[in-house]
Design a protein around this nucleic acid. Structure first.
Length: 906
RNA sequence: GCCGGUGUGGCGGAACUGGUAGACGCGCCGGACUCAAAAUCCGGUUCUGGCAACAGAGUGUGGGUUCGAUUCCCUCCACCGGCACCA
């Protein structure tokens, strides 16, 4: 054994050792319980960042732990390889996206290997590989056949200078990122997937995912956004024909308070009214400009304009004016709302601004301004009566709408009804007259998958002038993406490539054009976990092996994918199940969302207002005598820099840390140990160079302790007639407790208690920081143990073997080396079963009991482990310090908590 | 605005089921080794008072339940995340 710990050598050896054995290649074995551990696959951006390292280390720890638990564990890896960054890089460097992508994959793969992850590389997939994306195309055609995929026009961001569609992130302040031109909304035909057909099931099934974080389930539920209400139809006449204006409302109880209706700018009624009204047409144009992003709409001022159209109130028959309002969304509900200014804040502002009448139809409770507490309702109050100023109940003097539920007033036959009864009664009346009914409304919209981009999976359709849109026949799949093109930023290069574009119609054989749109990259990532389980099958998208491995037992990835990726995957898996391709509907049994990796941000503001950021490695932090941060200076010039707190590592803030440099400086094991030790996996991780240094220090210390133990004699000899690590309870342990000294027994107990804790922390709680802390504590205990007797050395041997085994999922390379040094040459530690604590070692003869007087700690007593409550009570009361506090006082009560404490109440 | 989460030493964090608050690590202070430094090792490190034994205070704020609360309940405050003219 080497005296010095040299991670580079140790890690190369361990990796070669595993490679030789193809240690991580797995096959479907019906005799073993399976475990599918999956980390979200990376986008091949160039190099790994710390978030990747953290993500994949967590997955690797679980993978290796479960393997030692006896599971047949699959941990695959692949590449989410299509996407916009490749096109941008291509433009910058004049290299085709394919080359850039494949080069990045090669480099990042070497990085993953250097970190020692237990990955089955035989199953590697890249989504830009035609052998992968042909199945996107194949399943898309199946969806088309079933009506799950369909075509309709959709709104996109259009750059009028480059004549190209922009992604949302390419629109900055409403302008194109390259041209600076004002971006327009434009309607073009696109393909959609009917995810809304699955909305109810996607929502309901969230309850059946107890292994998902509450947070993610809530986010998904909000995103799906189910809302129950009533569809109300307002009849009107147009060109002598009776028509209906439909609106959706959750407050049908306020229907009698309607004083106007408002429609979205894109609503057909708005377009109709604009034909004879140039001012209105101009207003509608104005509303259509700006981005398609909702976040920016949210801050716009409420504006509107009247049409000269009127509709009829479905119950009172009153004439109701129709307005166009910029606050009405065409994409939600019916694209139109009924305006009840008295009881809706937006309607209220709108009515105030344009002088529309306000009619109160809900009692505010006391007749005065109802604040949170005073409504009489059959439902919890909704909100927003915030004005503290009680004033007259006359709506004219309101300064905010009364939105809480309450009793109907001023509503004819509905007077006196509460929220629920009023909604029921009004819905029933509407149903009877054919002017409405109860309806469930979803926030979730169908998934538009068309992207007007080059570097993606081609949508397999052919546009024939005679036959229309014709699906590409299965036997012609894949529709291969030409890989040599370099986009120039103006439109999709596929549209300028005749060899791709021009084709024959599969139906009539005439000249036709291929669809040039490609699929959203979320399509690629919606089923890759199934492909890993059926890798290399040229004949089918998935096969029976998918049913062996699925569902994924543990999925690990960033919280940023809490909504879209996870929702799309759940949807896609359901579609595949409905088509009969797989048997599961929920793809991910347990989900772990790892926290972000943060680092300090240092900056300087120059007089002209420009901000310069400095990497933390170039900054010297100044501390006071207690170690508190008091300032920071740039090492180069000794001048102060500003500390801006900690944020996720990014290029723009210049606070990134390169994992590769750390691996070459400290070794993969130290980096892995630090990342697992610093914070629990779900929390953010604050980077610290000192912390990595500390992890490396621990590794060197562990190495040295094993080295010194081994050097003092053949370690395995010492165990010849002593307990083996984790000897089964039935197995006779040759060193019976009775023969050991107190110190020897204490160390054995500490070792086995630590094993029990570490097993629970990794296996059940999935917290690695406390597992590592427990092992460090055991190391501290071990350092204080000095005993050269045969029994002493045997126990040290046992303890070291346990430590090495417990750490092996986290620091696998060094663990393998140390395992060999401890007398197991050539024995792969990864194939060792996880040790079990020896119950005999855990037995204690005496235990320490804490004694409190009135809940305050006043002493400790040692009692036999099997002592009765009475004996413990007496021992506690005899304690000198306890007597001091109870002397002259009357003891009212003594509480004894078995094995833990005694509380004396005086 | 709605939904969810989090507040513990100088810092990251621990205390899992109501039972010794601050494990473990970083940093800092002191010591050993060294000509010296690095590395390593030993000791200390919540605050206040005390040489010490020890005592008092202490887990964002204010209250409550309990023999006992970081943990449960209520109030308020701060921060983080998600959603949002969603009708």
């Amino acid at each position: 054994m080497q005296e010095r710990y040299e991670p580079a050598v140790v890690e190369a050896q361990a990796q070669a050792f595993w490679d030789e054995r193809k240690a991580f290649a797995v096959t479907e074995d019906p005799n073993k319980p399976k475990y599918y551990c999956l980390s979200m696959f990376p986008y091949p951006s160039g190099r790994l960042h710390m978030g990747h390292v953290r993500n994949y280390t967590i997955g690797d720890v679980i993978t290796r732990f479960m393997r030692m638990q006896g599971y047949n564990v699959l941990q695959p890896m692949g590449w989410d390889a299509f996407g916009l960054p490749a096109e941008n890089a291509a433009m910058q460097n004049n290299v085709p996206p394919a080359k850039w992508t494949y080069d990045n994959i090669a480099y990042m793969k070497s990085q993953l290997k250097s970190l020692g992850f237990a990955i089955d590389w035989d199953r590697e997939v890249a989504t830009c590989d035609p052998r992968y994306y042909r199945w996107n195309q194949w399943l898309f055609l199946r969806m088309l056949e079933r009506g799950i995929a369909y075509k309709k026009t959709g709104v996109v961001n259009w750059d009028p200078v480059d004549q190209t569609v922009l992604a949302n992130e390419q629109v900055i302040d409403g302008k194109g990122w390259r041209t600076g031109a004002i971006v327009e909304k434009r309607e073009i035909p696109m393909y959609y997937l009917r995810i809304t057909d699955y909305a109810q099931d996607l929502l309901d099934s969230l309850d059946q995912l107890p292994g998902w974080p509450e947070r993610v389930r809530t986010m998904q539920a909000n995103w799906i956004g189910r809302s129950e209400g009533v569809r109300v139809s307002f009849p009107y006449e147009l060109d002598g024909e009776r028509r209906l204006l439909n609106v959706f409302t959750t407050r049908a109880d306020t229907l009698m308070g309607v004083t106007f209706c408002a429609v979205a700018a894109e609503h057909p009624l708005a377009s109709y009214a604009a034909r004879s009204n140039p001012a209105l047409a101009a207003f509608i144009e104005e509303c259509k400009h700006g981005t398609a992003m909702e976040a920016e709409l949210a801050v716009m001022e409420k504006k509107g304009m009247p049409t000269d159209l009127f509709v009829t109130h479905p119950i009172t028959g009153a004439r109701v004016p129709v307005w166009v309002g910029n606050y009405v969304l065409m994409t939600y509900g019916e694209g139109a709302v009924m305006g009840v200014p008295a009881h809706d804040e937006r309607d209220f502002h709108f009515a105030k601004k344009y002088g529309l009448p306000i009619i109160q139809v809900i009692d505010t409770g006391s007749g005065l301004w109802a604040l949170g507490s005073s409504q009489s309702t059959d439902d919890p109050p909704l909100a927003s009566a915030r004005s503290p100023k009680p004033s007259s109940p006359i709506p004219d003097e309101w300064d905010v709408a009364f939105e809480s539920h309450g009793v109907c007033v001023n509503s004819g036959k509905y007077d006196g009804l509460g929220y629920r009864e009023a909604v029921d009664a009004i819905a029933a009346d509407l149903r009877a007259s054919g002017l409405g009914d109860k309806q469930v409304q979803w926030r979730l919209r169908d998934w538009g998958i068309s992207r007007q981009r080059y570097w993606g999976c081609p949508i397999p359709l052919i546009h024939c002038p005679k036959c229309g849109d014709v699906p590409v026949p299965d036997e012609d799949l894949p529709v291969a993406l030409p890989e040599g093109l370099v986009p120039d930023g103006s439109g999709n290069p596929l549209a300028k490539t005749p060899s791709f574009l021009d084709c024959r119609c599969p139906k009539c054989g005439g000249a036709a054009k291929r669809e040039t749109d490609t699929m959203d990259t979320f399509v690629d990532s919606s089923w890759y976990f199934l492909r890993f389980a059926s890798a290399n099958n040229d004949q089918a998208m998935v096969d029976e092996r998918a049913n062996y491995w699925m569902p994924v037992d543990q999925y690990i990835g960033g919280i940023e994918h809490a909504i879209l990726h996870l929702l799309y995957s759940r949807f896609w898996t359901r579609v595949m199940r409905d088509i009969g391709l797989v048997s599961v509907k929920e793809p991910f049994e347990n989900l772990l969302t790892q926290g972000m990796v943060l680092n300090d941000i240092y900056s300087r503001r120059s007089p002209d207002g420009r901000v310069q950021y400095f990497n933390p490695v170039d900054v010297e932090v100044e501390l006071d005598s207690k170690g508190s941060r008091v300032g920071a200076r740039l090492k180069r010039d000794g001048q102060p820099v500003e500390w801006e707190g900690m944020r996720t590592m990014s290029k723009s803030k210049n606070n990134g840390v390169d994992p590769q440099q750390l691996v070459s400086e400290y070794g993969a094991d130290s980096v892995r140990l630090f990342m697992m030790f610093k914070s629990p996996p779900e929390d953010t991780l604050e980077w610290s160079d000192d912390g990595v240094e500390g992890a490396a220090r621990f590794m060197r210390r562990l190495w040295r302790v094993v080295y010194e133990h081994v050097r003092a004699g053949d370690g395995s000899q010492a165990t010849a007639d002593s307990p083996k690590a984790g000897c089964a309870p039935t197995e006779a342990c040759s060193l019976s407790s009775a023969d050991l000294t107190d110190a020897q027994r204490a160390l054995r107990r500490a070792a086995h208690a630590t094993l029990a804790k570490v097993t629970d922390d990794i296996g059940r709680r999935r917290v690695f920081n406390t597992a590592i802390a427990a092992v460090m504590e055991l190391m501290n205990t071990l350092s204080k143990f000095e005993d050269d007797s045969a029994a002493g050395r045997a126990i040290v041997q046992e303890t070291l073997e346990l430590i090495v085994q417990m750490l092996s999922p986290i620091v696998p390379h060094a663990s393998q080396a140390l395992w060999e040094a401890l007398g197991h040459a050539g024995d792969p530690l990864i194939d060792r079963p996880w040790p079990k604590p020896d119950p005999a070692a855990l037995v204690q003869d005496t235990i320490e009991i804490v004694v409190q007087v009135n809940g305050k700690l006043r002493g400790r007593v040692n009692v036999p482990a099997e002592a009765t409550d009475d004996i413990v009570r007496e021992a506690a009361l005899q304690d000198a310090n306890v007597q001091k506090w109870t002397e002259g006082k009357q003891i009212r009560k003594v509480i004894v908590v078995k094995g833990k404490l005694v509380n004396v109440v005086v």
